[in-house]
Write a protein that binds this DNA or RNA. Sequence first.
DNA 1: TCAGAAAGGGTAACCGGTTACACATAGAAA
DNA 2: TTTCTATGTGTAACCGGTTACCCTTTCTGA
Lengths: 324, 324
Amino acid sequence: MASIKEVAKLAGVSVATVSRVLNDKGYVGQHTREMVEQAIKELNYKPNEVARSLFKKQSSTIGLIVPDIMNPYFPELARAVEDTASKFGYNVILCNSDEDKVKEQAYLDMLQQNYVNGIIVSSNTMTAEQVIKLNIPVVSIDREISKGLPTIVVENMKGAHTATRYLISKGCSRIAHIRGPQGVVNADERCEGYREVVQQESWFSESYIVDGDYDMESSIEATLELLKTHPEIDGIFAANDIMAIGAMKAANQLGTKVPDELAIVGFDGIKLSSVTIPELTTIVQPIYEMGEKATKMLVSLMNQQEVGQTYYKFDVDLIERNST
Amino acid sequence: MASIKEVAKLAGVSVATVSRVLNDKGYVGQHTREMVEQAIKELNYKPNEVARSLFKKQSSTIGLIVPDIMNPYFPELARAVEDTASKFGYNVILCNSDEDKVKEQAYLDMLQQNYVNGIIVSSNTMTAEQVIKLNIPVVSIDREISKGLPTIVVENMKGAHTATRYLISKGCSRIAHIRGPQGVVNADERCEGYREVVQQESWFSESYIVDGDYDMESSIEATLELLKTHPEIDGIFAANDIMAIGAMKAANQLGTKVPDELAIVGFDGIKLSSVTIPELTTIVQPIYEMGEKATKMLVSLMNQQEVGQTYYKFDVDLIERNST
DNA sequence: TCAGAAAGGGTAACCGGTTACACATAGAAA
DNA sequence: TTTCTATGTGTAACCGGTTACCCTTTCTGA
């Protein structure tokens, strides 16, 4: 790879002038500029980003920390982030934290050592202190680290209301909820939303709420157990799509017909939800838009631009399909 | 962030000595070493990776270029690559090429400018020339760029044989194939494998092979068309899982029972294949292992170590589930 | 006519590491 | 005792850019 010195020599100017042409900064004569551009073309010169980063204390890179890219929610988010970052000239370093505090801190250190300009993170375990100590813009997505930090979330409560009311409107008279992990904010909110709608119903009891782990296995088990103890259940609101699919599998295993005998609604609107048979009715989050928004906000933050609002709560939508 | 100079000053030594301690290189007295380590701890010093990269002409980063991380095959691959890279101290820059030659070249340039040490790529459009010009180790995965370049693929032909023979063994007497895009090596091979098994059958004609685009929509359409023109079909081998699921949807739409009236086999063994109802019988690729192997090979290549074999063809397995 | 501003471009310091080289000292071999 | 080698440490060049600062030349306006 040719360096700026070689370009300077070929063009018969100093490196400073080449740099000025490159960055379109300072005064450069028309003729000189052409000479330099010619030399650049001739040598197929591309400036060394590492050297640039060292001087600027800024790499044109952002970090994306997710719990696990294999979790179907995150590929779409990652795609949105990468697309948007790329549009603004940034690269994306992918990190899988497994929600592990030690790994998370290690990634944070690594990103800082690499002079990344900003970080997008989805985590339940990260603390505000960790983030602030970094001294780099951080946007939190899907999960809230702390009020005050830039955050992108969705209307979990409202989505849960919508899902539960919808099941009622479909004629369900006994509606259960498979909730996400205790302590995870969005799981708590979705559960709370469900509870607000059903708690004044005469049939409701706490045993209609069962724990899941946001994965399929836990949900299958929970549903099997649920339908055994409460055979009267005719509607399930699962806190995410994977668990909703698990519920469908459990129902199928027991010979319970979906949607005729049991209606099921999920949450998230991941692509997966439309490949099942029957297709899943779900509360969709605008995942791509959220990733895009997060990245745009991060870019503004990195460029020290004004960014007015730093807390966004995206609306969610019910998509009616065949599981209800 | 503290710099090496500050550490040197605090420890009362020169920066060279600090560097020696850091890298465990050259002679350092026991007492001096302790002083330096103490200073490092005190300042919470972490060496600046960018400065290091500049001098070494090596960043501890590798690039991963995939067509689209949203394609369900790739998250698992990405996870494997990131896990393995991380284990060896490397970061991963994620790039979505959309199989677009221009984007691909742009990513290649960018990665080179950022001094990445190596690249893992999955692409049909990249040429050997592009790769060689980079002068960086590149491992191709899932798709073959050129014999001679480090490559990880699977036994596509054999997998197709297995799938087709399996359908025959299950009593299917008219077996169709939904193939992947023309010109894509693995699609061609899978099709060829199918053809080898069925072409001596008396019932076989080219009209049993239909084009798909490795996505669900194309497959639904193709299957609908196929079943209309050939109602006698009782088995379908789809060239990937997504298309197999598309075929299931089409069958469902026509009221054809899977697996009773129509058996379906997919290819890839992505996680998705086990969430459908009925679960999909498929030829599984060891995706995670492939990503792991690719990364390990890349690391060896980057460290100029001996790597004997550079072409791996992984075996595939039939997983029997409920779609057959 | 002449001061001051604008335009054009070079020199060298700097970013934060690594390492070749120089130098000093101590112990081992001759 | 002398010489050689191993050990320990500092100085400064270097990686490839950016930019503060300086110097010249040309233009502008009073």
